[in-house]
Computed example of a mutant assay.
Amino acid sequence: MESLSTPVSYLALGDSLTEGIGAVSPQQHFVAQFFRHLQHSKQCHMRNWGISGMTSAELLSLVTTPGVTRLLPRLTHLSITTGGCDFIEMYEKGPMRLRTILQTIRMVQDRVARILEVIRTHNGQSTVYLLGFYIPLPAYELGVKKASLFVQTMNHAYAQLCRKYHVHFINPFDTFYNRFDYFADEVHPNQQGYDQLARLFIESGWGSVAGQNPQTEVNM
C-alpha cells in the first residue's frame, strides 16, 4: 500500500470499456471515477489508453512495446479490460460450437497470462486489477443458462490467473445479471453501468488511500 507521500500513477489499458463507450462523458466512466477515488494530491496522474475494439492479442502486443515496458516500473496502479472483443469476433464469425468456444477461452486465457507476466516482470509491486465478464444483451436471447455457464467459466479462468500473478479480480457478473437498465447498447454499459463498475473497483479495497482528499484533475 502506497503512503500519502507517494503520488498515484495509474495506467488504464484495454478495450471500449476502458475507453468508456456508453458513458455520458470521459470524466464519468469507471476509469476516471476510480482515479478520483485514488487521487490524494495534484501530483497524482492517470493515463487512459483504452481503445475500442482492442483484442487480447493487440493488448499483448502493446504491453510488450519498449514504451510500455519502460513505463510499467513507474506505475502504482494498473487496470485491464480485455477479452470481450475476442468473443465478439467469435460470435460474429458463427456458428458458435462448443469446440470454438473452448478454443477461444484457452486462447484468451493464454494471452492474458502473458500480459500479466509481462506486467509482473517489470513491476512486482503495483496494484493491478483485471475486470471480468458480464452477460451481454444478445446472449440473453440465445439462452441465458448457456451464456451464464460460458461467462462464469471465463471469470473462473481470470480469477485463477489473478491469484497466480497477485492481481485483483473484479467480477461484474452478479451486478449486471438481468440488469438490462445498465446497458447503453448490446454490449456497453450506460452511465448507470459505469457507475456500478466504478463502485466495484472502489469497494475492492485494493489501492484506496487512507485519509484521501480526492481532486478533480484527470490527465488523459
Rank of each mutant, 00 (worst) to 15 (best):
M1Q: 12
M1H: 10
L4E: 10
T6I: 12
P7K: 04
V8F: 03
Y10C: 03
L11R: 02
L11Q: 02
A12V: 01
L13A: 02
L13H: 00
G14F: 01
D15M: 01
D15E: 06
T18N: 05
E19Q: 15
I21D: 09
I21E: 08
Q27F: 09
H29R: 04
Q39I: 09
H40C: 05
S52D: 07
G53M: 05
M54N: 10
M54K: 14
S56G: 05
A57R: 11
L59C: 04
V63K: 03
T69Q: 12
L71T: 05
H77L: 09
I80L: 09
T82G: 01
D86A: 03
F87M: 07
E92P: 02
M96L: 15
L98N: 12
Q103P: 04
M107R: 14
M107P: 01
V108Q: 00
R111H: 08
R114H: 11
V118D: 04
T121C: 13
L130P: 01
F133C: 02
P136R: 00
L137Y: 04
A139Q: 07
E141P: 02
L142G: 11
V144C: 06
T153K: 07
N155D: 05
A159W: 06
Q160P: 06
L161N: 05
Y165P: 00
F169V: 07
I170V: 15
T175V: 15
T175I: 14
N178L: 13
N178F: 07
D181I: 08
A184Y: 06
E186T: 11
Q191A: 08
Q192M: 13
Q192D: 14
G193M: 02
R199E: 14
F201N: 00
S204H: 05
V218T: 10
V218H: 02
N219S: 12
